[in-house]
């Protein structure tokens, strides 16, 4: 009985550390990405320019990503950020935000390893691999001329 109790206590101590790490990671990745999005939005409001050719409200709310509307590739986002284009800055924040769960899953792999839970470390790693595969799906869609 005491063995079980002490084992449970030890487990909860490990869980405490991992939940702290997760909390810090989640909070900061959201703070950083949303701050970047806010900076981009404020810059857009203040300058009244997106940095791209989106003139009227109609095109602002209906345009898909392209060279003239807004960037959606890492290289074009980055070059836009370097020239302080508001929409490129927003996209950078959005990209960091949407990659947060990727990092979270990888973190979860290490947390399970730390808790000596090999089965769940492998499960979490497989989930991470599935997430990576989703990015490859973009190529498949493009090859099929759907995207």
């Amino acid at each position: 009985m005491t063995d079980v109790a002490s084992k449970e206590q030890k487990l909860s101590a490990e869980e405490n550390i991992s939940s702290k790490i997760l909390t810090i990671y989640l909070i900061w990745s959201v703070i950083i990405s949303v701050s970047i999005i806010i900076v981009g939005t404020i810059l857009f409001i203040v300058t009244g320019k997106s940095g791209y050719n989106m003139e009227n409200l109609n095109s602002l709310i209906t345009a898909k990503g392209s060279l003239s509307t807004y960037p959606f590739y890492i290289q074009s986002i980055w070059s836009g950020v370097l020239t302080l284009k508001p929409f490129a800055i927003i996209q950078l924040g959005v990209l960091i935000l949407l990659l947060t769960p990727f990092g979270r899953m990888l973190l979860q792999v290490f947390i399970f390893l730390y808790e000596k839970d090999t089965t769940f470390a492998i499960i979490a790693l497989v989930v991470f691999a599935i997430l990576l595969f989703s990015l490859y799906m973009v190529n498949i869609l493009e090859a099929l001329h759907i995207a």
């Binding site: 999005i37 806010i38 981009g40 939005t41 857009f44 997106s50 989106m54 602002l60 709310i61 345009a63 898909k64 990503g65 392209s66 509307t69 807004y70 959606f72 590739y73 929409f87 927003i90 996209q91 924040g93 959005v94 990209l95 949407l98 990659l99 947060t100 769960p101 990727f102 979270r104 899953m105 989930v127 599935i130 997430l131 989703s134 990015l135 799906m137 973009v138 869609l141 493009e142 995207a147």
Partner: peptide, 24 residues
């Protein structure tokens, strides 16, 4: 969050995440 990330990458890199809408 993890589930959404699996499709968000696809929407983002096919140009369906418009910053004017996505930011607010």
């Amino acid at each position: 969050g993890v589930t959404a990330a699996a499709s968000a990458g696809i929407y983002f890199f096919t140009g369906d995440v418009n910053p004017f809408i996505a930011a607010p």
